[in-house]
Amino acid sequence: MSELAVERKTKKPRLNWSKKTKRSILGVSMVLPSFLLLLVLVIYPVALSVMESFKSRDGMWTLDNYLYLFTEPHMLNNIKHTLQVTVLSSVFVLTIAYSIAVYLRFNHSWIAKMVGKLYFIPMFIPGVIAIYGFINFYRDNGWIARLIGEGNLPSIIYDMKGLLMINIWFNIPFTTMLLVSAMSSIPNAVIESAKDAGAKKRHLFFQFIFPLTYKTMLVALTFLFMGIVGSFTAPFLIDRNAPQMLGVAMQQHFSSYNEIGQASSMAVFLFLLCSFVGYFYIRSNMKDSTKSY
């Protein structure tokens, strides 16, 4: 498989072309099984969904589903709520995760070591269980309420606060992990020499640490956004009944009202939002790329 290496050493221009084609065919054939799976299980259903979103209940082409999505007041509220939850959650997660990552990089106390060993554990807890634990912990007669006394706790469960908290809980480990890795790849020498040159802490942060990690923040933001904007389980079990996150509204329109077209238009709308974020992610990846193919 490392014929490429051999090929490079024993350059035979005439053979090169056919060898290149051969390798192309080999490449495509090795990618094909997983891509076929993607085609059948993702791309085709997505296309179906997009088509469905432009169809009325009796199968005629129509824009009604999108009209419904963008003019119906409660749907507009749902959209607003979805964006609000997604943006707030992402901002909180990024801020907290970044702070933890900076702390773990530059602090070597036993507390830092302990945090470093513990922070990713939530990633290993099944989602439903975490939510279940959350509800038992924070509900109005939950453990926290028992510990600090009745009436001292604002309502958290069945409220946006609870949803934001569980989103933070779920997403901190993954985001922190990415950022810790980005931080640890900043060489000590860079920081030491900047310090020797008399850089202040703030200066050091904005001139060196932030620029070297902001691409990773973009990666983290992409996956945070995509994960939260279309989420179902957490908002379904924790959020208020109205306004809803679009993921919940979608499920309801599909299984309770049997409105496949409307549910699909929501899915497509969420997909467009994600594509918008994904575009920046892909573009930034392309820019760094050293390979041109």
Binding site: M1, F35, V46, S264, A267, V268, C274, G278
Partner: peptide, 28 residues
Amino acid sequence: RIQFPMRRFFLFSYLLTNAFPKMGLYVA
């Protein structure tokens, strides 16, 4: 390792599994 046409298109197409909302995908 291997150079082949449309490599990037194939590579980034996997992002689609995350970009389309799961609920909508499962229904389809």
